[in-house]
Design a protein around this nucleic acid. Structure first.
Lengths: 152, 152
DNA sequence: TATTGTTATACTCTATAACTATA
DNA sequence: TATAGTTATAGAGTATAACAATA
């Protein structure tokens, strides 16, 4: 009866990564770009600086992500009204529509759960996920305590 | 009272990714390499082919991962006794010790939960994770049903 | 002098396609 | 002819460091 929970964790992590990008919309947005759009949708037009902070990622990285999203037409760069060093990134019409749809699907999924699904499948998933959840708690707990008590 | 669950999902996913590699050992193993070591520890010496299947990743990718782990001294390539096309990958002494320790930590973590942690922190995490868990269930459920009922 | 975004450079993970050596 | 592993090529995501323009 070895735990094998790490395996499940790895599987669920992979699944999550896929879902975060694939699930919510039909366009070919990657997870990182989806995340940026999501933040932009929440924050409104902001500087790349602000995005770097929001995504907890280097400014250099934002340059690349915005480049990609600009090329695909989801965001646009604009001038900052007062600070000429800064760039304001905002959602285009396409970007806006994409995020509205994503938010809709998100909400629908939250209120309309397991509809067309075999009961056996649900059981199976619940069992796996309970184990994973247990593991999640421990991992997060340990992470929390580690960042609070260690200082190397 | 917007859900904001996607944010939590994103955060937890990122956290998981980190934990999977960082948590379990002090060496600088990446998630993908850790995963390969984990499988190798379970399966024993196997061909790169078998690893590609186990990790669900292209053979080309295995070449790269094994290259890295060979350079860091965690695995070694050896000849296959009967098939001269194939390569047998096995854990070195270092790799073996690393995985034994990782399995130990894994077990310890499973049986010795929230030890040195503020109670308030636990509450906070539990609350977040319950929401995330709810979300996980829906995502996995939808994923399941999608792969069973759609055929595009 | 400090900050914003960029270029330069580099590493990891991933993929497909073509090729070599063997089955 | 099919399989195991490699090289070639490519793209995404990430990082640090140096630099230009601006505060």
């Amino acid at each position: 009866m070895e735990p094998r929970v790490l395996d499940q964790l790895l599987a669920v992590t992979a699944l999550l990564q896929q879902d975060l990008s694939r699930f919510f919309e039909g366009t070919q947005l990657t997870p990182a770009r989806t995340h940026l759009l999501w933040e932009l949708h929440r924050l409104g037009s902001v500087t790349q600086q602000a995005l770097a902070v929001a995504l907890q990622v280097s400014p250099r990285n934002i340059t690349g992500l915005v480049d990609g999203l600009e090329a695909s037409g989801h965001v646009a760069r604009g001038e900052h009204p007062t600070d000429r060093r800064a760039t304001l990134v905002s959602l285009t019409g396409l970007g806006e529509r994409t995020m509205v749809k994503m938010a809709e699907d998100h909400r629908k999924l939250s209120t309309d759960p397991v509809s067309d699904l075999e009961p056996g499948d649900v059981d199976h998933m619940e069992r796996n996920l309970d184990a994973v959840m247990q593991r999640l708690r421990l991992l997060v707990a340990a992470d929390h305590s580690a960042s609070g008590s260690e200082e190397s």
